[in-house]
């Protein structure tokens, strides 16, 4: 507990002690990716592996951008983005309810591609391939000093708060009825059904919760970068990154994905990007390949003593 308080205090510091705005920005995107990885892991907790979380990220991003451009407050717009993502998740979750494993993974992959195509072609709403620009920044908060809520600093604290919320939701989930049902469904759905668990209910619940967090992150993201394009937010990158981070950090573990996200993103942005900008996606590809071939349990399996 004391350790957690220490980490929380440390996390609050960077903008206060004069980190360069670029580093503050990189750290806030790292928190955003950690949120995505945690959200992805929440779906995986019930045994459902998604290769298309970009669908929920993009729906959240477009939902928030359109709402915000209509003149609604960005906070409400981000919430609206989350709601749009949930609707999109329930759609694919219900349609693919019979699918499991690789077939579900492929279905989610196709789903994200489908939304990317729709966003590219439905120009009247989405702005087409060029996307939407002129999205307002996050508003400052009247109650706190201006310097803490403005620009990169503001985004930093908001993304940190969203990450903390995501981790809190994940932690609560593992200890709740939802977590118990998902563990049972993940191990043996037919056996779980004989104990009164209706698998589809809980699978959809985890789809919705995972998409909600992902969509909120998407809404937050568009208010940080202030543009939205189909290839960006519905692109493969936002499908593969949470998957890599969660698998690298350890499926079903609470903190592993966050640590992996921070490590991989900071390595990619701070060390690799300045040297070889074209290769900044490479660490994710390599991490995924290495984890599948050499470390199926992810980093979390190193932290625990080997069991059975």
């Amino acid at each position: 507990m004391r350790g957690a308080a220490l980490v929380a205090t440390l996390a609050l510091l960077p903008p206060l002690i004069g980190f360069h705005p670029y580093y503050v920005y990189v750290l806030s995107t790292a928190f955003l990716f950690a949120t995505l990885a945690t959200a992805w892991n929440l779906l995986a907790y019930g045994g459902q592996i998604s290769f298309g979380h970009a669908a929920f990220f993009g729906l959240g991003a477009y939902g928030a951008a359109l709402t915000s451009l209509a003149g609604v407050s960005p906070w409400a717009a981000i919430a609206a983005g989350g709601a749009v993502a949930v609707a999109g998740a329930l759609l694919i979750g219900a349609a693919a309810a019979r699918l499991g494993g690789a077939a579900l993974a492929l279905a989610t992959l196709a789903y994200a591609e489908l939304w990317r195509g729709i966003a590219q072609n439905w120009t009247a709403v989405s702005g087409g391939g060029a996307g939407l620009v002129g999205i307002p920044p996050l508003p400052t908060l009247a109650a706190v000093p201006l310097d803490l809520t403005r620009g990169h600093t503001g985004s930093y604290y908001v993304s940190l708060a969203v990450l903390a919320a995501a981790l809190g939701v994940f932690g609560l989930m593992t200890r709740s009825r939802l977590g118990l049902a998902l563990r049972a469904v993940r191990e043996a759905a037919d056996r779980a059904a004989l104990l009164g668990i209706r698998p589809i209910t809980w699978k959809l619940a985890s789809f919705a919760l995972s998409a909600l967090l992902t969509g909120l992150a998407g809404g937050l993201y568009v208010h940080m970068v202030r543009v939205v394009e189909p290839d960006l937010v519905f692109g493969r990158f936002f499908s593969i990154v949470p998957l890599v981070m969660a698998m690298f950090g350890g499926l079903h573990s609470v903190l592993g994905p966050t640590l992996a996200a921070l490590g991989l993103h900071l390595f990619s942005e701070l060390l690799l990007h300045p040297v070889a900008p074209a290769l900044h996606q490479l660490p994710y590809a390599v991490a995924l390949i290495v984890v599948i071939l050499y470390l199926p349990g992810g980093l979390a399996s190193l932290a625990k003593a080997p069991r059975d």
Binding site: I49, F51, A285, V286, L288, I289
Partner: peptide
């Protein structure tokens, strides 16, 4: 998952 990494 492995070949997703290779694609990237």
């Amino acid at each position: 998952a492995l070949t997703f990494g290779w694609a990237l």
